[in-house]
Design a protein around this nucleic acid. Structure first.
Length: 748
DNA sequence: GTGACCACACTTTTT
DNA sequence: GTGTGGTCAC
């Protein structure tokens, strides 16, 4: 096996180790993808039928990459291998099996976050719940959490222990019923219902257990409970489960990922072999040391010692900017310098930030400087209004019961069907229990509709019905899309607007047409992948809709493109760059203000910091600003506590003040400007009972009789009248020093 | 039914 | 500061 020579001894053992459960703890940059792909190739080389192998990833990008790499190793012998994300695997299974669950149909559509929210709001309205008290987002969050834990409506309701949760259970019940009515599944359903099929239909489970004799899971630390059960049900029969992950890179706890899954693997599979990949091939000694030091401050982790044979490399540059603009300016300057001095290309650079909102200022500066860039987060292509509109049309053509899509487009472009008429149609549909589109054929009987409305609705129906019959005859998605844009008047309406904005929308729609064209082009491959069986009602259009509903922006990541890459720290996970700028490293930003109050949240942020640092291969720049505009208010900020967890000898400091004004000015508004003066709560520091209410500082930990413990995030003004912004456990408040019954617990 | 205007959340992170 | 959603006048 020639390829085994590419591996170090542990990697090799991981690849060669045969049957039985295997846990691979793979530190950042330790060649985990290589191990996974080689392991699959090795299984195939040993004569295992690829058809019996399932490899699961989290992103399409990771799946594609893995498929490509395996292809190189085994060539066409890989035929039949499943390499897919959790979600797309489950969709595939459900497309075959979901009709075994009462009421569900195989032709379901998939609702994204926006659709979910729309539907939740619809439910809140029906249930007469005040949207002030029951924020749609919060309710959706609770429901999603329940689904991730595989709680169905009745078990969720049974354990609802307060008023909010009781009402949320009502929403959950209605929400599920509506999804069923509209023939739609949300993201969480994909996993939950697959598990349900497995549990309720032993013969289905058995089929897949036998088929997937060898299972590999990437990023196992990011699995949530539902995904965990899904995998473990499948692996139960043969126990050939190989999971790869790094508990230090678990950064999706907030969306239900449970690090415990990887930490408990040895408990679940006592016979498991455990291997640790600890040699890092990516980063310099300096970068790796910094990352190790930071993450070493976490308590709940498996001991690991990442090392490298790479050279020591440059010191990490730490930059203190006066504000976010100056910080951006610094980044631009460094990019220019490194391009000139070291002949680097733009594609060598990545700028990473905690929140999407931070990209705006950076983008402005990049534009001004004429530096090519690409943003991999923020408003996503598929979330743009015009794209959502055209998708809604396509979905309605595909599924005449999809009320969310119907409601979205019935009056786009304007057809004189306002909110009142829409409500009447929906009400009528509800009563008649028919697909919403079909109800339009009876528009004349819908009570309360004007004749004008009736004719508008009838002609709308005719357009969609016509398009539908053409779709059934098998015209391409591109043709269908073009016809929708034309026949619904959507394009004409946009052109008539004649604004810059409308032009960009048209441009996006053209971009969308190239997506459909690509799909049409690849149709053969794609359907091949789906292993269609006779009678399986998988239309061309359905395949397209499914594909677009499962893509994320990062999936379109192009490593080679000659542009600076901007993305959130989360999106950067799994990627690497020669030069990394991590910006906005300030307490309250990163770690986020919400994480400051709970140890476990802070630890997740620290892991995110570890992930961020280990993205860099050669050079790492860390920056923070002393003042920053937040929600339109200027706020003073302190350097991130993570910065002081990096040993000073690994750092070289640069500061705008020093450059401009020289040393010794002590200009920092809150403390002297030597870095590292902040204190984390874990430090001793005697509790101080506040005696002078005027003396609050950013970073103080305080206690409020009503709101509980909190952190001072900003102080505006001085003395008794000072306005103090404090983040409490559940809320952020602005308080006036004189009146707020704040007690200072820790002080500097 | 439509469009203009105002108030007010909102900022984590995404398959 | 921005985007959304609600209200009101036409």
């Amino acid at each position: 096996m020639y390829y085994l020579q590419d591996l170090n001894p542990v990697q090799r053992e991981a690849v060669e180790s045969g049957e039985g459960p295997l846990l691979i703890l793979a530190g950042a940059g330790s060649g985990k993808t290589r191990v996974l792909t080689y392991r699959i190739a090795h299984l195939v080389a040993k004569g295992i039928n690829p058809w019996n192998i399932l490899a699961i990833t989290f992103t399409n990008k990771a799946a594609r990459e893995m498929r490509d790499r395996i292809q190189v190793l085994v060539g066409s012998e890989g035929e039949g291998l499943w390499v897919a994300t959790f979600h797309s695997s489950c969709v595939r299974i459900l497309r075959r099996e979901i009709s075994k669950l009462p009421g569900y149909s195989r032709s379901f559509v998939i609702y994204d976050a926006q659709d979910q929210l729309t539907l939740i709001k619809e439910c809140l309205k029906v249930l007469n719940l005040d949207e002030k008290k029951f924020a749609a987002r919060a309710v959706l969050g609770v429901i999603s959490e329940a689904k991730n834990k595989l709680l169905d409506v009745s078990s969720f309701a049974a354990q609802a222990k307060d008023y909010f949760l009781e009402k949320a259970a009502d929403v959950y019940r209605l929400y599920q019923r509506k999804l069923l009515d509209y023939n739609a599944l949300d993201f969480d359903d994909l996993i939950m219902l697959t598990v349900r099929v497995f549990r309720e239909c032993p013969e289905v489970l058995e089929y897949y257990q036998k088929r997937f004799r060898y299972i590999l899971v990437d990023e196992y630390q990011d699995t949530n409970h539902a995904q965990y059960i899904f995998i473990n049900l499948l692996a139960k029969r043969y126990r050939n489960l190989c999971v790869v992950g790094d508990d230090d890179q678990s950064v999706y706890g907030w969306r239900g990922a449970d690090v415990q899954n990887i930490l408990d693997f040895e408990r679940d599979y006592p016979e498991a072999k455990v291997l640790k990949l600890e040699q890092n091939y990516r980063s310099t000694q300096t970068i790796l040391n910094a990352a190790n030091e930071v993450v070493g401050n976490n308590f709940n982790r498996k001991a690991k010692a990442l090392w490298t044979e790479n050279k020591e490399g440059d010191k990490i540059i730490l930059y203190k900017a006066s504000n976010e603009h100056e910080e951006s300016r610094f980044v631009m300057e460094k990019i220019r310098n490194l391009c000139d001095a070291e002949g680097r290309s733009y594609s060598d650079f990545a700028i990473l930030y905690r929140t999407n909102a931070q990209s705006r200022v950076l983008e402005e500066h990049l534009m001004k400087e004429g530096i090519p860039y690409r943003i991999y987060s923020g408003l996503k292509f598929y979330e743009r209004m015009e794209i959502k509109d055209i998708l809604a049309y396509l979905r309605l053509v595909h599924n005449s019961a999809d009320r969310v899509s119907f409601a979205r487009v019935i009056n786009v472009p304007k057809r004189g069907i306002g909110k009142g008429s829409l409500d009447k149609i929906l009400e009528y549909t509800e009563e008649q229990g028919m697909p919403v589109l079909e109800a339009l054929t009876e528009a004349a009987y819908i009570p309360g509709l004007q004749a004008r409305g009736v004719s508008a609705l009838t002609s709308f129906y005719e357009i969609i019905a016509r398009l539908k019959s053409r779709a059934q005859k098998g015209i391409s998605v591109t043709e269908l899309t073009e016809q929708i844009l034309k026949e619904t008047g959507y394009m004409v309406a946009l052109r008539q607007e004649n604004t810059v904005e409308a032009d960009s929308r048209i441009e996006n729609l053209n971009e969308f047409l190239s997506v459909t064209a690509e799909y049409d082009h690849n149709l053969q491959d794609y359907l091949g992948n789906f292993e269609l069986e006779e009678g399986q009602n998988m239309t061309i259009l359905g395949g397209f809709l499914e594909q677009v509903s499962l893509v994320a922006d990062i999936d379109n990541y192009d490593e080679a493109e000659d542009a600076v890459k901007l993305m959130t720290m989360h999106s950067a996970k799994g990627l690497e760059f020669p030069v990394v700028f991590a910006v906005g490293l300030e307490d309250g930003m990163f770690p986020s203000s919400r994480s400051l109050l709970e140890q476990y949240l802070l630890e997740e942020e620290r892991r995110l910091c570890y992930v961020t640092i280990t993205r860099a291969k050669e050079k790492l720049f860390l920056s923070h600003a002393e003042q920053r505009m937040v929600y339109g208010h200027l706020e003073s900020r302190l350097p991130s506590r993570f910065l002081q967890e990096i040993p000073k000898e690994l750092l070289a400091e640069e500061s705008s003040y020093r450059e401009i004004l020289g040393r010794g000015f002590g200009l920092s508004p809150t403390r002297d400007n030597s870095f590292g003066n902040t204190r984390s709560w874990r430090d001793k520091g005697s509790p101080v009972v506040n005696s002078d209410p005027g003396r609050f500082q950013v970073g103080d930990k305080v206690e409020h009789p009503k709101f509980g413990p909190g952190i001072v995030m900003a102080v505006k003004g001085e003395g008794k009248g000072a306005e103090i912004s404090v983040v409490f456990r559940n809320e952020a408040k602005k308080l006036i020093a004189e009146y707020a019954k704040l007690v200072k617990i820790y002080s500097e």
